[in-house]
Design a protein around this nucleic acid. Structure first.
Length: 261
DNA sequence: TAGATTGTTACCGT
DNA sequence: CACGGTAACAATCT
């Protein structure tokens, strides 16, 4: 579920958690793997308040007057605040949140609470996360930053899809968004990252920006136009051609055999 | 039931 | 050494 768009919804929700005294913190054992050994948030955060809700790519950062709490949502993580979900619906569960899938909890002195809800448990909580390991944020990526992100020192570069997924180069683009962006830009995901012409680079940048804007308005990463074709015997919604499927950049990739050739 | 899954990372290979 | 592909992680859904 969560790519950059969903994390931005979570960030906006978390703004309502600012300036409220933290009373207690609990983090489940697996989610705690994002913390250095021995670091106990339950002993560090109470008494402080969150003062800013920031996001870099898929990383949510909640600053306090002191340290910052980092939240990663893995494949199925969601954020709830005072019983309100950061997104309208969830992939798993009967349309609602299940108590057994709560993996972390911040309780405020006013009785409200911030929850990390994550069925598959790949989400992680961290303290003062390393934001420097992430590339420029996809939601505000300039064409110059895109050009830099696609460049390599030697050779012709990895498949462009793999480079779009590399969080150290561009932060925030996940598997579904990458396929949707390349599908809209009519670019074969296997193309070497340095093989784009200047015109294609401009095209890719334009589609990256417009795709993120449009899907954010629609409701998330799973609302793309090519999604219906992501299945066996799927046909391209644009031209009716057969869809190709392969693993690129470590993820299942779907693309049109005609207009992305 | 077998297969697939929207993310991250340790490890292996070129 | 830089860099990319792969498997593993965990649990659920189709």
């Amino acid at each position: 579920m969560p790519e950059i768009l969903e994390i931005e919804y979570y960030r906006q929700l978390a703004e309502a958690a600012l300036e409220r005294e933290i009373a207690a913190v609990w983090v489940d054992e697996l989610a705690s793997r994002g913390l250095e050994p021995g670091v106990d948030l339950a002993a560090i955060l109470p008494g402080l308040s969150f003062v800013a809700a920031r996001r870099r790519g898929k990383l949510l950062v909640l600053d306090t007057e002191g340290p910052s709490m980092g939240l990663r949502f893995g494949m199925t993580g969601g954020l709830l605040l005072d019983g309100v979900a950061g997104i309208d619906r969830l992939r798993y569960g009967p349309g609602s949140y299940e108590p057994r899938w709560i993996r972390a909890r911040v309780t405020f002195a006013d009785g409200g609470e911030l929850l990390l809800h994550d069925p598959r448990r790949l989400g992680r909580v961290s303290l003062d996360p390393d934001e420097g390991a992430l590339g420029p944020d996809a939601l505000s990526l300039s064409i110059g930053e895109l050009r830099t992100a696609l460049a390599v020192r030697h050779g012709e570069g990895p498949p462009i899809k793999a480079r779009l997924l590399d969080q150290s180069k561009i932060a925030g683009v996940g598997n579904l968004l990458a396929d949707e962006i390349l599908w809209r830009a009519s670019i074969d995901p296997r193309r070497p990252s340095t093989s784009l012409s200047p015109a294609e680079l401009r095209l890719l940048h334009r589609h990256l920006r417009s795709t993120l804007d449009q899907l954010f308005e629609r409701g998330g990463s799973h609302t793309g136009d090519h999604m219906e074709a992501r299945r066996p015997q799927g046909r391209c919604p644009k031209d009716g051609a057969a869809m190709h499927r392969a693993t690129i950049g470590g993820r299942t990739t779907w693309w049109c055999s005609a207009h992305q050739a």
